[in-house]
């Protein structure tokens, strides 16, 4: 991604991997030979801190450590909902639309790198606060249950972990990373199987990846 963006100013890209079994996921990254740090977040700490409820999501942080775009789907769109669920293939026009959405997002990122605060994609503080959905009390309890379940799982107590992981799902049903992580712990690949697509179908007309308004209204 760094090579694609070709920053005119320093840009640090820091993907964080939300896998309770993160060291397995790390092998994907090793194969990709990235030139930027890939951080393993087995406890979903960054998701909690930045209120990320899905993957991929991204946050833009300026040179002063200020958030200039809050957590949002990073160029992801709902085209995957039409894919063939056995082969994971999708129609060419749907795939093309996905590529366009990703390019639009990277173009916006490139604009910010080049123009800094003058970029039309830098949101005002009021816009950012309006887009942030602060965690509810239920979300805080969901996090506590998830973190305890994750600790138990990673210390060899899978059966003991299960009720806490399920409670996290129940308390924050809109947090897809709790839902999918729990499925994956039950069975590798389950997070992309019928349970997942059943939950996506249950959204009906609601989006899985809410559309993102890229440009700031003030510019």
């Amino acid at each position: 991604m760094r090579d694609y963006i070709r920053p005119a100013q320093p840009l640090q890209i820091a993907p964080e991997i939300l896998d309770v079994m993160g060291w397995n996921a790390a092998e994907y990254e090793r194969a990709a030979a990235p030139t930027y740090p890939n951080l393993i977040d087995e406890q979903h700490i960054v998701a909690e801190l930045y209120n990320m409820n899905n993957v991929p999501m991204s946050v833009w942080i300026d040179e002063h450590g200020r958030i200039v775009r809050p957590a949002e789907p990073a160029g992801a769109s709902d085209g995957f909902r039409t894919m063939d669920r056995a082969t994971f293939k999708m129609a060419k026009e749907v795939a093309d639309q996905g590529r366009i959405a990703r390019k639009r997002y990277v173009d916006a990122l490139r604009d910010w790198v080049a123009k800094g605060a003058a970029s039309e994609y830098v949101l005002s503080p009021d816009e950012i606060r309006a887009r942030i959905q602060p965690p509810s009390d239920h979300d805080a309890m969901a996090t506590a249950n998830f973190r305890l379940g994750q600790w138990l799982f990673s210390h060899g107590h899978a059966d003991a972990a299960r009720p806490y992981l399920l409670k996290a799902r129940a308390l924050s049903p809109e947090c897809w990373h709790y839902f999918r992580q729990t499925l994956e712990l039950e069975e590798v690949g389950k997070a992309s199987g019928p349970d997942f697509f059943g939950a996506v179908d249950a959204l009906g007309s609601r989006p899985y990846y809410p559309p993102v308004e890229l440009k700031s209204a003030r510019k």
Binding site: Q12, I13, A25, G65
Partner: peptide, 20 residues
């Protein structure tokens, strides 16, 4: 170990993903 604060002075794109 990496801290976000190590990168103060640079723009940072924080991007989450997972293998599942």
């Amino acid at each position: 170990a990496h801290s976000l604060s190590d990168y103060r002075g640079k723009k940072v794109l924080l991007l989450s993903w997972a293998s599942w």
